[in-house]
Design a protein around this nucleic acid. Structure first.
Lengths: 158, 158
DNA sequence: CTTCTTGCAAACGCTTTGCACCGTT
DNA sequence: AACGGTGCAAAGCGTTTGCAAGAAG
């Protein structure tokens, strides 16, 4: 073994925590831990992209062709994960949703209207204000999402 | 004529401006001004709700049953209005979009996850930060939307 | 009279569901 | 053994489109 790669270790530990959370969640609800469910979680974890159910399905078919995972299972698992707040989604009208693991740090999104790419950001001032606003208006805040739409640097140069 | 009702006058003037904008838009693109298009704009204007294409269609069928406006026309007109930035939409995954006139003052949304109702708000601090963020990340900002999800006062009491 | 618009119905694309078989517990 | 999960194909549902008839310019 070469010298320890902290990055890799961090990722590994993070993933195992995630996997354990998932297993606990399943147990708590008398649901079963299956290979398909694990592969979906793992693929989400290893992707830096925001994935559509379809693109997630494709990734899984490429990496684990033997499993023959059906798209229905991908949808069912994503719903399960979203209901338990392990993943979050962004909506795109009739074009569906894109999903990402919610275990990552919270962040908001800059979406390029030309190429569809998504850049993440966090701004503490905005986070703080959101809590103030919900309080003022009598809402019990559960979640929030913010998207800035525009043209990214790359597309501006075209 | 009775004494002037400023509220009514404001609304009327506002609507006529809107209608003129719409007519200009159509003319500029060699499109035609039809009764259906006018009725869609008017119904959007007279609604305080965020409307789905379906609910907008229902409203129109109730108020103008003789027109027999088809849902396809509602969709086509909403797309037209959205493309020209006269209306804005909120996405709800596969459940579609809700539309509102964009001519109103800009605002963000508090969405109740229990009853689905939408409360509007504006916060200048957040508006300002959004511009800063887009600038910092090299985005040419075109638009943005922010939603806070939570449980509204009414639903908390249930 | 030309061109755009409309309503209708069919097509579409993403998502959900019913079912028989299979895997986990 | 019992119970939930899976893949498949069909159904669902909101949205879009092709087309012939109709209205606007």
């Amino acid at each position: 073994m070469p010298t320890v790669t902290t990055d890799f270790n961090d990722r590994t530990i993070e993933y195992e925590q995630l996997l354990n959370d998932f297993k606990s969640l399943l147990k708590k609800n008398s649901l079963k831990f299956t290979i398909q469910r694990e592969v979906i979680l793992e693929t989400l974890y290893n992707s830096d992209e925001h994935l559509t159910p379809e693109s997630l399905h494709h990734l899984i078919q490429e990496k684990f062709p033997d499993l023959k995972t059906g798209i229905a299972t991908v949808y069912r698992t994503l719903s399960l994960l979203e209901d338990s707040n392990m993943v979050t989604s962004l909506s795109f009208g009739a074009q569906g949703k894109k999903y990402e693991l919610g275990a990552k740090n919270h962040h908001d999104h800059l979406i390029c209207t030309e190429c569809g790419n998504i850049t993440e950001f966090v701004d503490e001032q905005i986070e703080t204000r959101q809590h103030h606003i919900a309080d003022e208006l009598g809402f019990k805040m559960l979640d929030h999402s913010m998207q800035i739409y525009g043209i990214c640097e790359t597309c501006q140069q075209k």
